[in-house]
């Protein structure tokens, strides 16, 4: 068990190096300069430019730049090229909002995805299953920005309720409860839109894994015992079909972060997606690299966690 975790951590570190390498080269090898004042600005003297290049090690050969980048990344000395703030601070400022949004979206994906997949498997082949299948492709094919705008349009224009940002402004909240409820409400809509694709993929996976399980002999045994269909389904079948659900915890993250770049921009939600988009606009290399690394770390930890969880659920899985 311990050796399994250690080996996995070792592999993760190798992967992280690979990822840092890929992100660094994608970002630095592309043409264009990161100057916050634009490439050709005549008002900037060569000395200022040189100082900037020196500060961010842009005057060094590439492999040294990469080394410095790694060094600064791990010591937390990496600074934004735009406003010189420590990258870590900029990211941790966004962390609570990001975590709230992504955890909510993961919860939605897993719970609704499981539910839809379950019913699809139960009614496989008939019209209920076909409509659920269709619904999940509908969810995958919906452009996030489009559905967000339609929601914002209808809710703001025709219903007149506030949904942008993390909470309503200009209102006195009588107590903490109303404040938190207001925040939860603001979280809801972006989280739902963000989780649509996750719900769909999750339900597809669960459906096929559930169909496999329902064919197993032990399901026949359970029915032959005289158990009710509910018990057969939830206690005997579901527990054996959980693999996609548990793998989902780690694997959903990258697509959520991707989706949040757009969703957070639309809902004016101050999370990491928005930060990433701004960094792209401003060519803020250190932030871009750090964001990729943080997401990758979270994905790898999520995968490790889901493997451990799976061993807990299925006694046949031994971690070696």
């Amino acid at each position: 068990m311990l050796s399994f975790i250690l080996r996995r951590l070792g592999l993760s570190i190798i992967l992280l190096f690979l990822i840092s390498f890929i992100s660094f080269f994608i970002i630095t090898l592309t043409p264009g300069s990161p100057y916050p004042w634009g490439e050709m600005n005549p008002k900037i003297s060569p000395e200022v430019k040189a100082a900037f290049r020196k500060k961010f090690h842009l005057d060094l050969p590439l492999y040294q730049q990469y080394e410095m980048m790694l060094h600064d990344l791990f010591t937390g000395e990496l600074r934004s090229m735009k406003d010189d703030l420590p990258v870590m601070k900029k990211i941790t400022d966004r962390l609570p909002a990001t975590l709230a949004l992504n955890i909510m979206a993961i919860l939605f994906s897993l719970s609704f995805g499981t539910l839809l997949g379950l019913y699809g498997a139960l009614y496989r082949g008939n019209w209920k299953d076909m409509s659920l299948s269709f619904l999940s492709f509908l969810f995958i094919a919906l452009p996030g920005f489009w559905i967000s705008y339609l929601l914002v349009l209808t809710l703001v224009k025709y219903v007149g309720i506030p949904i942008l940002g993390t909470q309503s402004y200009g209102i006195e909240f009588p107590n903490h409860l109303t404040l938190w409820l207001d925040r939860l409400w603001h979280l809801m809509l972006p989280a739902i839109v963000l989780s649509l694709a996750g719900i769909a993929t999750q339900s597809r996976y669960l459906r096929s894994s559930m169909i496999e399980t329902l064919r197993e002999n032990y399901i026949l045994t359970a029915r032959a015992k005289g158990l009710s269909p509910t018990v057969v389904l939830y206690q005997h079948a579901l527990r054996n079909s959980l693999r996609p659900l548990i793998t989902g915890i780690g694997m959903l993250l990258p697509s959520l972060i991707s989706g949040s770049v757009i969703i957070e921009t639309i809902f004016a939600y101050p999370g990491m997606g928005q930060l990433g988009y701004q960094a792209v606009l401003e060519r803020d290399y250190p932030i871009l690299i750090t964001l990729n690394m943080i997401v990758a770390t979270m994905v790898l930890l999520g995968n490790l966690f889901s493997d451990l969880l799976y061993a807990l659920v299925d006694p046949r899985v031994r971690l070696e």
Partner: peptide, 13 residues
Amino acid sequence: YVFQEASTSLNPV
């Protein structure tokens, strides 16, 4: 009932 394949007729989890 008792079925043919005991190895798959008992719930593994």
